[in-house]
């Protein structure tokens, strides 16, 4: 699609705004710093765990830097509009985040904000 006038743009904005929203969003800070700190295996672990439980209403995003460099890799879970930020995440923790926090709604350790 190519936007050729203002109404095209408004239509695109409307379409995006009305897209069905996932109930839960998981964001992994995936800038140079995050990747260096080990964000890649974390993303892979999250993908694997999400696939295992066949979770359809959860979206996984790789984003830029969130600024919490001291605790990289970081994973932010947004559930019911509430953000929970996990720091020092590794692949073991990533599995736990999906299984315990996202799926079972349990409070787990590792929250930094």
């Amino acid at each position: 699609m190519k936007i050729t006038n203002f109404s095209d743009f408004d239509a695109l904005k409307n379409r995006i705004a009305n897209e069905q929203k996932d109930e839960i969003t998981i964001r992994v800070a995936y800038a140079t710093c995050g990747i260096t700190a080990g964000a890649k295996p974390v993303v892979e672990a999250l993908e694997k765990e999400l696939l295992k439980h066949n979770l359809c209403c959860v979206s996984l995003k790789t984003t830029g830097c969130l600024g919490a460099c001291y605790a990289e890799p970081t994973v932010m879970v947004t559930k019911d509009g509430v953000d929970t930020l996990f720091g020092y995440v590794d692949s073991v923790k990533a599995h736990e985040i999906v299984k315990e926090f996202v799926l079972n709604g349990k409070e787990i350790e590792g929250v930094i904000k």
Binding site: K13, R27, A29, T62, T63, G64, C65, L66, G67
Partner: peptide, 21 residues
């Protein structure tokens, strides 16, 4: 830094959703 860490930098629609363009 309004979008940094929140949107997918490779997804233009994610930027547009957050008032982009």
């Amino acid at each position: 830094l309004r979008n940094s860490g929140l949107i997918d930098p490779n997804d233009i629609e994610d930027y547009i959703k957050n008032d982009g363009y």
